[in-house]
Design a protein around this nucleic acid. Structure first.
Lengths: 352, 352
DNA sequence: ATGAAAGCGCTAACAG
DNA sequence: CTGTTAGCGCTTTCAT
């Protein structure tokens, strides 16, 4: 038994963190009193409490919440948020919304990057192994069945922006289809009949939904959907630009463009610039972005309230944590068309 | 003793998570064998191992890494990143860079929003209470002395973008002063002598540094620094726009603007638009942004490699974790001027 | 190849 | 008002 002073035998003061045991030893009281002070329970004299607080400050004590959670009904007061690498304003707003609600509930939000589909599972598992009380997931991968054990263990999982596959869970979505319908109808109203579509991979839920809405609008006006005016699979602004250049350089170019996310919108603007068509080809883009009003002409967009999506997802999660257990469902939030100019360019008279 | 079956007495399969004890009971082996399988140690027959793996899958077992860390030298393989709410691309790139290095080191990055200065301490403390192995902080507040105990306990802390106060720790900074000097010199070279400056609060390190660089450039060319052309305290694009409107509407308006971050740049562009001065007043902005090339005229900026900042900070952190302990220092990364058009507008001949 | 027991830092449930 | 004991889920040490 070598120099067993403060339990851990801390002497140098350098390595390892002080524990409650150390604080207790420092004061000459029991560990339980320290615990009481820390948790604001009563049953400790003011004098002792004072000395304990002093010792904690002196030693630089910080409670180990991990150990605490281990004992305390396995709650960590932490919720996990998994985000794929986006590179849009989506992140910030979403985190904000979630944070607002979590804070009200006394929970702490930890965000992890799930990156590509391949790494997503690993990321979510790591979050769960760190025992979050709930999980909000912006899906990157295809199947989330592996999260079922978490759900059954009482950890609610809420999906954002895309519905879950392989698991029954709440989802908070944007009304992609209706937004795209409105955007397309807006262009049709200006007389456009040849509308080019540029977007990411159609296997992505939001992309498929948006295309569906686009086609619905065309049907309503009895305009044929021209396959050759659609360019999908553009994963970044660069690829979208090339798709647009290709589209606009074809024999029968579109008189308007409908872009399926803001990266595509930015790519489209670059393409229109290069070809000197900014004022001649109309454009409506899905997703708003900060400088949309500064581009010439200002970009007409379909916008959605991402912060509200975050708040809604967080509320759903906390409701489930509180014991509510209706059948998992989808909440769909509306979009708004913001007319700024690019979408109000009328069709060029082709007979001239 | 009511139906004590699997240790925890789990029967419904609903509440609580399965533990190693449950897995062991399910297989009819000891908890230690389960542990061995999980950690890839040998000393378990292939047959038993197989049955254990099966049971884990069946029960949806997930190891509690918190409990693990409690026992295992208090390492959690997790590093914490604290970010104030920025609303710029800074976030994404920084997280990316840090993530890249952390992944190589087998660590997991958890990001928390530190929000305003007031909430920062609370956020950082919460991260520490969750026992991260290291901490990367983009400071929001003024004093970080409260992090000293963490450092002493062997948790390295690295600051990004602003140097620490009240604590000796590594910092990874941008060469704000040199960048601002170069940007200002660029404008001076076009003949501008009345350069308006719009930025956030001067108490922010980067703002002060940038102003310093700006003034240094003026001194070199023997141009007087005109206090009345400087508008600080603009915390968002909106406020920056009003500051610019004010500046440009004054009796002796500047012929060029130097904006101290991208929010201010965006505000300035809006102001120039409103006044129809986009082609007449030159502008250079600190920080690049995605659509800078799409604005008319395209915006000349001082850009820095944020991802590299992240990688550098992470590397420093892991080096300290590995035992390196030189005196804490500053690493300063260079900036690059990207001329796109707005900064190359020559001074208007005032005599005409 | 396997398991029993101790203990990580903390709190819950009981004593005094 | 204060302290003792047990145990959260896991790994470590030491036996078998």
């Amino acid at each position: 038994m070598p120099s067993a002073v403060g339990g851990t035998g801390r002497t140098g003061g350098r390595a390892g963190r002080p524990t409650m045991k150390d604080v207790a030893a420092h004061v000459g009281t029991s560990i339980k009193s320290v615990s009481r002070v820390l948790n604001g329970e009563d049953g400790v004299s003011a004098a002792t409490a004072e000395r304990i607080l002093q010792a904690m400050a002196e030693l630089g004590f910080r409670r180990n919440d991990l150990a605490r959670g281990l004992r305390q009904s396995d709650r960590t007061s932490t919720i996990g948020l998994a985000l794929p690498q986006a590179g849009t304003r989506f992140h910030d707003s979403l985190v904000h919304g979630i944070d607002e609600i979590a804070r009200q509930q006394g929970s702490f939000v930890l965000t992890a990057s799930s990156g590509t589909a391949a790494r997503e599972r690993e990321t979510l598992t790591a979050l769960c192994s760190r025992r979050v009380d709930g999980l909000i997931v912006v899906p990157a991968g295809e199947d989330h069945g592996f999260l079922r054990p978490e759900q059954q263990a009482g950890v609610p999982v809420v999906f954002v922006d895309r519905p879950p596959h392989g698991i029954a869970a709440d989802a908070v979505l944007t009304d992609h289809a209706e937004g795209a319908r409105a955007g397309t109808a807006h262009l049709l109203r200006q007389g456009h009949r040849r509308i080019g579509v540029v977007g990411d991979d159609e296997r992505i839920f939001s992309v498929a939904e948006r295309i569906g809405g686009h086609r619905a609008a065309l049907r309503t006006e009895q305009v044929a959907y021209a396959e050759e005016l659609t360019r999908l699979g553009a994963r970044c602004a660069e690829e979208a630009m090339h798709a647009c250049l290709d589209l606009l350089g074809s024999g029968q170019p579109p008189t308007a463009l409908f872009t399926l996310n803001n990266q595509c919108t930015i790519g489209a603007v670059r393409a229109l610039r290069r070809l000197g068509l900014t004022r001649r080809v109309a454009m409506v883009g899905f997703d708003d972005f900060e400088t949309a009003d500064l581009i010439d002409p200002p970009v007409t967009v379909i916008s959605h309230d991402v912060e509200e999506i975050g708040r809604t997802a967080a509320r759903l999660m906390f409701e489930r944590m509180a014991g509510h257990s209706p059948a998992p469902g989808r909440t769909t939030l509306p979009t708004k068309l913001i007319a700024r100019g690019s979408g109000e360019i009328p069709v060029v008279d082709e007979s001239s």
